[in-house]
């Protein structure tokens, strides 16, 4: 059974919502990025999104944009991202989703990318600027390499497109909680739940909700209606703040453990 399917099946069996974490590969550099990914896995992240550093991350806010700049300054590319995945894979339980803009993949060649990603042990690909209409051939290439293709769904996505994404996508669907780019926010908008419910009516694929989630209470709140919550920018900020510190890895681990704590009213972050 593919790792993503297995993970979400296990989460359902446990009656628990999952935690998906995002970090940019190679931030702040490749060695520490590898350690960060291992720490995320140790701390109990259920799915690991690994971002490919790109020069023009148009769907990302400043936090992830800066992370891509740090990673690129340290030599990070799509190729080093795949090397990084290969390096951590043997020690990591969680499925790994490559989170990328489409141009680096096109530059490598879709077939070559798929083969290398699979060989590295990646489980799925999410291409931020590759909407359904452009994804036909891409999906077949990924599928023939055994990679799931994850689609983003937004509050602006029509029901008809949700159904098509459910047809073409596999692993899970990624629902965007709000209009806008990535970046931590203070609250989960009410529209997020409505979107997840719209998606649920059209597919049995697991639904992860992300964009703007930053705190344990967000994760718990989302866990009540989605299969998983995605935390990205808030985690990337932890890495940015501790990048120069020997405490980087413990802090990342602690941040993720807190995200996963069951709510008892005392762990609400400010």
């Amino acid at each position: 059974m593919p790792r993503l399917e297995e993970t979400f099946a296990a989460l359902r069996a446990q009656g628990r919502a999952g935690l998906v974490t995002y970090v940019t590969a190679g931030d702040p550099d490749l060695d520490r990025s590898a350690q960060v990914i291992l720490a995320l896995d140790r701390a109990g992240a259920d799915v690991l999104e690994v971002g490919v550093p790109f020069s023009d991350p148009v769907a990302d806010g400043p936090v992830i944009e800066r992370a891509a700049e740090r990673a690129r300054a340290a030599g990070g590319t799509l190729a080093t991202t795949l090397d990084l995945v290969a390096r951590v894979r043997p020690a990591v339980r969680a499925p790994i989703v490559l989170f990328t803009y489409v141009n680096p993949v096109l530059a490598m060649g879709e077939g070559r990318f798929a083969a290398r990603a699979r060989a590295a042990g990646a489980d799925a690909v999410l291409a931020l600027d590759l909407p359904l209409e452009e994804a036909g051939l891409f999906r077949r290439t990924m599928a023939s390499a055994g990679l799931d293709l994850v689609f983003l769904l937004s509050p602006t996505t029509t029901d008809e497109r949700i159904a098509r994404a459910a047809d073409l996508g596999s692993g899970f669907l990624y629902a965007i909680s709000r209009l806008g780019v990535t970046g931590a926010r203070d609250a989960v908008p009410p529209a997020a739940r409505a979107l997840v419910e719209r998606i649920r009516r059209r597919t049995s694929l697991p639904v992860a909700l992300g964009f703007g989630l930053s705190r344990p209470d967000h994760v718990r709140q989302v866990g009540r209606f989605a299969d998983a919550a995605v935390v990205g920018s808030a985690l990337v900020s932890v890495i940015a703040e501790a990048a120069a510190s020997p405490e980087l890895i413990p802090r990342v681990e602690q941040f993720v453990r807190r995200l996963r704590e069951p709510g008892d009213g005392r762990t609400e972050a400010p």
């Binding site: 148009v58 769907a59 489409v102 931020l128 600027d129 590759l130 909407p131 359904l132 209409e133 452009e134 689609f151 983003l152 769904l153 937004s154 509050p155 602006t156 996505t157 029509t158 497109r161 965007i176 209009l179 806008g180």
Partner: peptide, 20 residues
């Protein structure tokens, strides 16, 4: 209908922008 002039063009936008 997909906005292509030959092999060029198209619509490579983040999902939120597809509907707009």
């Amino acid at each position: 209908e997909r906005g292509y002039f030959g092999a060029y063009g198209g619509r490579f936008v983040p999902e939120t922008l597809v509907a707009p």
